[in-house]
């Protein structure tokens, strides 16, 4: 069973470690509900994630939607190439790139 954890690195900075997949998405969503303040802009570092799949992409889209609903910003660093490829398959690559930052 794969695992994943969200670590707080600063007031508005978070880091995800582990898999960003179907088997971890539910747990990561629950963790994010406790950690993230949706009304404030946050940045998430995904450079420490291992495997990803379309459920991981769905989770990221959920975080983007929440930020948008609250008029807050979301920035993602270390976006896994595999996640971008999956987004490409779903014609969501452009949407994903709107939150992608190259700076760690």
């Amino acid at each position: 069973m794969s695992e994943a954890t969200i670590f707080r690195e600063g007031a508005f900075h978070f880091r995800v470690e582990g898999d960003l997949t179907f088997s971890t998405a539910r747990s990561l969503l629950a963790q994010s509900q406790e950690l993230f303040n949706p009304s404030q802009g946050i940045s998430i570092d995904l450079s420490h994630t291992k495997r990803t799949d379309s459920a991981g992409l769905a989770l990221l889209l959920e975080w983007m939607k929440r930020a948008q609903d609250h008029g807050a910003s979301l920035e993602v660093t270390g976006m896994p190439q595999a996640l971008i490829a999956i987004a490409g398959l779903c014609n969501l690559e452009d949407l994903l790139l709107t939150v992608t930052s190259k700076t760690p």
């Binding site: 997949t21 379309s54 896994p80």
Partner: peptide, 20 residues
């Protein structure tokens, strides 16, 4: 994608992994 939508609409769980 249409086939995935068709199967997903039935309630079937579909996941695309990183090898596509």
């Amino acid at each position: 994608t249409t086939t995935m939508e068709l199967l997903g609409g039935m309630g079937i769980t579909l996941v695309v992994d990183e090898k596509m």
